[in-house]
Write a protein that binds this DNA or RNA. Structure first.
Lengths: 302, 302
DNA sequence: GCTCGTATGTGCATCAATGCACATACCGTC
DNA sequence: GACGGTATGTGCATTGATGCACATACGAGC
């Protein structure tokens, strides 16, 4: 990529500040420079982008459509730089102590474990305990510094940090499909064996097949509390299973069933009490987890 | 967020280019500046980040851990800026007109052709002329909008854009190996027939066997100006040939000869005058070409 | 060991970006 | 309408970044 042909990231960040403050003088004070320089930099940016990014309004400067696109890019750059700065600040302190994390087993082993291993490699004095449980967010988090939870979060004295969405979709094994065929409609799923979570032990309703009337009662079912068991059951032909996409997408041992008709999107959150969030190790875990999720977003969306 | 406290995004992008190219001089050429400036900017970045981002290695600069974090951030910034640029370009242009490109025949058919075909499929009004010639970068580029050249680029009034490295390695056919055996050392190559470029017509010295004293004078030689002819000659048992890896790697009709003892790395560049680079179609060609090369990097490195 | 080529770093001159003083424009108040 | 305050833009001086010439270091070849 020709870096000289790209808009100046510094100029984009200035535009972002203008968008926030509305006046050149305010921006100049904030950035420790003069309104003259701000004016000139916006002029230069407009030339780079081939149009006006700002227009005058009674309340000060307002973004044009081009300016709005540029500000979106600037926000990404700002966040990227902020993360890098935060990383550096973290690197300057040796992290130690113990962080206890509760997480569901599928997401835990696929995303949380790698992030924590990377973190601990850099901070060997940091001890990590990862408790696997597929549960809804608890009202009382004693003993746990951070919870990774699925679905809705109705909790009042904690902060929720969105990590990502993932998808539950219907899958079967090629052998099962060959032997029993696959349904043509969602109603047809009721004629098949179904693999899912144990309903009586289900804490997160969205993980179960009952959560939506889209899915009929199955002829028979194979239920497990472990998502690994569910995946293995589908792989071995136990039936049609409602599985997290990130565990089976792209694997030829799993055939999507009615992929255009059914999928269920679930958010994953990190939840922590405010006092936990004042801990540098917990903040580090969150940052590294976000990085892990972000860098593998296509697996979660796939 | 205090923007004055953040690392300079421009300096991060320079580090990214250093990480890709490994040498300040190459970066300077690519960015149209001097190695002095690159050196100073890296020094400045190291100060902003509070540590060294690069350390010396036998192959050039290598990233420290801090440098790797910084490069990750730089990649995000680059992509963000690229997306913004792409958005703006989309809004402005249906590509049309004529782009004339000069390129070597092997690389041209393997990488340039597919990229151009894809581009033209999307922009049917765009006409493309691809001139095949294996030459060094010319001082006068009249009639050609873009040159794809191999090896060193010593040119003053044009911009060079690094595309990739590829490798010349020694190969023979299985039949030749059976009949004559293969050498155990590089000196032993002198006892064999050698297939190479026509020395008297050689414009890029690195393509010839003489360029390095590692390769002895051959007993006899088969020389051709067409790399396709060279490949065919080796395939038909004419001798040991110095061939681009991307044309024969993985093909059972070609046996690597002394692969651990000899290889020659060559850079490939796109070169254009500043006024050519102001043309949206030329910019599009460069972008698509880079994408083609990037998405098939393992073939070039293999 | 010597020579050559290449890579990076230092010092000074040059150039581009920024600061400063001032000008112009607009709005609100009297 | 006049005045004061605030916001943005122009021209020239100043400052910081970059280019250029040269120096130093390293590796390869003879």
């Amino acid at each position: 990529m020709d870096l000289r042909r790209l808009p100046s990231p510094d100029d984009l960040l200035i535009l972002l500040t203008v968008a926030r403050l509305g006046r050149f003088n305010a921006v100049a004070e904030t950035l420790g420079t003069t309104h003259t320089t701000i004016s000139r930099r916006i002029l230069a940016l407009d030339k780079q982008l081939g149009g006006r990014t700002l227009e005058r309004s009674p309340h000060g400067w307002e973004l044009t459509q081009l300016g709005a696109s540029a500000v979106t890019a600037a926000e990404t750059i700002e966040e990227t730089l902020g993360s890098l700065s935060g990383l550096i600040r973290q690197d300057q302190h040796v992290l130690s102590g113990l962080v206890r994390i509760s997480t569901s087993d599928g997401f835990g082993s696929e995303f949380v474990t790698p992030a924590l291993v990377r973190l601990q490699r850099q901070h060997p004095l940091l001890n990590v305990e990862m408790l696997s449980a597929t549960r809804k967010v608890s009202q009382n988090r004693s003993g746990v510094d951070l919870e990774i939870v699925v679905g809705r979060t109705d909790v009042s004295n904690a902060q929720t940090i969105f990590l990502s969405n993932y998808y539950l979709r219907l899958y079967a094994s090629p052998a099962y499909a060959d032997e029993f065929g696959l349904p043509e409609t969602l109603d047809g799923v009721g004629q098949h064996c179904f693999v899912s979570y144990v309903e009586s032990a289900l804490q997160v309703a969205e993980l179960g097949h009952r959560w939506s009337a889209q899915l009929p009662m199955p002829k028979s079912s194979f239920q497990a509390t472990s998502v690994f068991a569910q995946v293995e059951a589908v792989r071995r032909g136990a039936g049609i299973g409602l599985l997290p996409n990130f565990m089976v997408a792209g694997n030829p041992e799993f055939v999507p069933v009615l992929p255009d008709d059914f999928q269920r999107q679930l958010p994953i959150w990190a939840v922590a009490r405010p006092e936990s969030l004042r801990s540098a190790p917990v903040q580090a875990v969150i940052a590294w987890l976000k990085e892990e999720v972000h860098s593998r977003q296509e697996l979660l969306a796939g």
